[in-house]
Amino acid sequence: MLKAVNAEDFPPTAEELHKMEKKEVKLQEAEAKKPNSSSHCLAWQIRSCLFQRATGTTSFFHEKIKLYPWVQCTACKSWLHFKCAGVEGDWTTKDFFCGCNSTPELDDILQSVKAEDILADEEIKDLERNLQSGTILSNRMYLWKNRGLDPALRKHYSEHLTLFNDMKTEDMIERLEKVLSIPGTVAEKQLYVSNVILPEVLIQWLQKTLSISRYRAESVLLKSTPTKDDKRPEDITKDDSESMEESDVLLRDCRAAADWCRNTKFTGRVEIPQVLSMEKEEQTQILQDLHSWEDEHDLDSPAEMFTFIFQYKKDYDYFWEQLVEGKNYKVFGRF
């Protein structure tokens, strides 16, 4: 028996998504002919415009804001809403560049930065308060507060939450959970932090670090793709899998399972394996210890470092059914 389940907890069917997409095409065609339409905002092109419609509907986000100023890029002459550009003040007599004339070099920065270096604790608290109050507009926060709205856009955002690998992302999420006091169940807190706060923190960090507009920072995040090392098990061919050593498979599946857990609603708390927060040298050592371990996999064994720990049995059972039995992941779990 299902009790007190919200409609938004069920994903739309393929038929519903297809109908929504057909409506969206017609609405886009009509909107493009309107001179003041949000479709002429650069951010609309990457689905990050703060005043866009919900997919397949005529309902706009942040409708209470009836008037909003625009700013034009000096280089390409394209337009952005002030809020989408992330600019404040009087820009009528100053040059503004949307980012079309620069390509941020991120690789070295992403490799060297640590979780504790990404904004100060007070900056994170201020950002969360401003997102909640609407002082800083965010589609992610808007969709969080309106759970049944625009499943297509929610799915789009959920695929672009971070710029980092799983280990550094997990470090960042742990830090955010410590810094912020968030009400609700453990599962709700985890989803709120990973789906709303984490990407918004990264957007603000990118703006600050690279001196770029919000639109450009949003663009960097939305265009980010997993690296080769972050392939999911279902993306790896049979030949790839056979060529990988067992230790590589364990870490790969552990990372993929952690990513799955972060995007899944559980009844209780879930602890992500400690190995994912270790440095590479520590991971190598713990893998060697695991391979040389000859006793049972109990609480004292190295396998504990790879173990997902669930507060409730039903959450553990669901995890096991979906990933171990369903996808053949090589992971450890207990409750």
Rank of each mutant, 00 (worst) to 15 (best):
N6C: 11
F10H: 05
P12N: 05
L17C: 10
E21S: 14
E21L: 15
E21V: 15
K22M: 11
E24W: 06
V25K: 12
A32F: 07
K33P: 02
F51T: 05
Q52E: 07
T55L: 06
T55P: 04
G56A: 07
F61W: 06
E63K: 15
W70N: 08
K77S: 13
L80C: 13
F82D: 01
G86K: 05
G86D: 00
D90R: 06
W91C: 08
T92A: 07
N101V: 12
T103E: 00
T103H: 03
P104A: 04
E105H: 13
D107Y: 03
V113C: 08
L119A: 05
A120E: 01
E123Q: 14
M141A: 12
L143G: 07
N146A: 09
D150S: 14
P151R: 10
H156R: 12
H160E: 00
H160S: 12
E170L: 15
K178F: 09
Y192D: 01
V193E: 00
S194A: 07
N195D: 01
L198V: 09
V201C: 14
K208V: 09
T209F: 02
L210F: 14
Y215P: 05
L221A: 09
T225W: 01
D229L: 15
D235F: 11
K238S: 12
S247Y: 02
A258P: 03
N263V: 09
N263A: 12
T264V: 10
W293S: 12
D298H: 11
A303E: 00
Y312I: 11
D315W: 06
K327E: 03
K330Y: 05
F332E: 02
R334A: 12
F335L: 02
